[in-house]
Design a protein around this nucleic acid. Structure first.
Lengths: 262, 262
DNA sequence: GACAATCGATTGGTCAGACCAAACGCCAGG
DNA sequence: CCTGGCGTTTGGTCTGACCAATCGATTGTC
């Protein structure tokens, strides 16, 4: 049995294993740090390093003062979007690559949606389309509803992997996608591209749905290419402007809510 | 200006800001922990918790014994795929859904690979295929080389998002995939499915590559369905077996080479 | 008896100082 | 020049302690 390189990594491995295996289920509480450290035969500092990592992965929720210890949670979708966002902040991912990735997921989703859509799915897709059409002048609302359309289609695929991955991408690149969509086509053209998708899914015509979604993305990529945006690196600017000096000062607050009446 | 809730989070925020803003660039070394802790006016334990988080995000590479401190790095693509994989592991995903997800990615990848493959890509794909063919009796080797084939195709797509996501899925569900492939077809049949993919990519015939890969997955899914494996959950399967003891044993290696003594 | 204020216990967050093991760098010796 | 050892540097871990926030029970009042 291969053990972790460090004790802290061992803690992560061990607890993650127990969570993923179902031995520790979401909602359950871990023992307090002192007790858990004793159980795992590591110091509390080492344990905390591991817990911190697990918390950052979204597997644990740690709150001070709680009676129990850390609470096992299900990682939120934001963990994926956060890592994607970080990735794009730190390296040059091109708009074309992102578009290709979306195409892979969404074309497949549309095809599956045609086969499996429930009436409720259909209603949601149609509602998004209508909302889009109704938001004549409001570019912002159009964007929201345009996205709702894609999400509804993805959900209708009945495959949460596809739907959630796409959702994560959206969260991560809301602004970027906004740019893509906004520059892609005028609203009428997007409507003309979305409507056939809805129709095909409504008719349960998988091939047509696939083709319609494919057309949508081909159109998008064509526009990107014509404007030379394919190679444009997308990166979100740093979320917080640091403006810090080269050598850091103190990291904590000046007037601490934590540094109370000690 | 909102500051971090905890000092450790403050460390993360501060250093991440400096990295994303370019003040700290990949390849540069941070000061040693003791010194950096002093600069940021936090204890070394707190600093370490922050560094650990940054390391887990892929922004830092920490190695013991180095002369300098932690090295600033560019997050690898695997961070994204790892979080996606974790997402899937913590939700009940069915084998059929996973197969669909793979199909979405790999069919697209095959299509792109046909357009973009370099000669080197081609060599790698061919090598994997030949290795598979040569591993007549060794099911284990066949599995490895079968995967290498798919990976090579994905890499040839020229889209790291597709390739890496697929890679990480493999890492996350190695056992499951093994099951899928192993039960899918006899080796000869897999060869018969892989070879047309290589041929199409070699000929730069995107449509044929897409079709060949699609056929491969349709075949796989047909087999899954025929054996009733489509609905088989993967990931957090053990929802009803809390048999393992609540209290855990030690986490570290048995031969504790690091056994500290205070 | 019900409700609110209070006090103590529990728990996470942080700190300080110490030791160990591995890697690095220097220098003597071949 | 290369190579081997040896001290230094650095990360990894431990112990024990203190603070602040929260929870829960106790207490006091209406």
């Amino acid at each position: 049995m291969v053990q972790a390189q460090t004790a802290a990594a061992g803690v992560v491995e061990h607890l993650r294993g127990r969570i993923l295996s179902g031995s520790l289920q979401p909602g359950m509480s871990l023992p307090p740090e002192r007790e858990l450290a004793s159980q795992l035969e590591v110091s509390r500092a080492t344990l905390r390093e591991g817990l911190s990592t697990l918390s950052q992965m979204g597997l644990l929720s740690i709150q001070p003062g709680r009676s129990g210890g850390a609470v096992v949670t299900t990682p939120p979708l934001t963990t994926v979007s956060a890592s994607i966002a970080l990735l794009f902040q730190t390296r040059a991912i091109r708009a074309g690559q992102l578009s290709e990735f979306r195409r892979a997921l969404e074309v497949e989703a549309a095809q599956l949606a045609a086969d499996r859509r429930t009436n409720r799915d259909l209603e949601e897709i149609a509602a998004a389309l209508h909302a889009y059409a109704s938001a004549d002048d409001d570019a912002r609302a159009q964007n929201v509803h345009g996205w709702a359309f894609h999400h509804a289609v993805a959900r209708a695929s009945g495959n949460p992997l596809l739907a959630e991955t796409m959702s994560s991408l959206n969260d991560a690149f809301a602004e970027c996608f906004e740019m893509l969509h906004a520059t892609a086509d005028p609203a009428r053209q997007i409507l003309a591209l979305h409507r056939p998708i809805l129709d095909a899914i409504c008719d349960q015509d998988a091939a047509a749905a696939r083709q319609a979604m494919l057309l949508h993305f081909d159109q998008l990529q064509a526009v990107l290419q014509s404007r030379g945006l394919t190679e444009r690196p997308i990166g979100m600017q740093a979320t917080t402007a640091p403006a810090s000096p080269e050598v850091a000062g103190p990291v904590r607050r000046a007037t601490a809510p934590l540094a109370g009446r000690g």
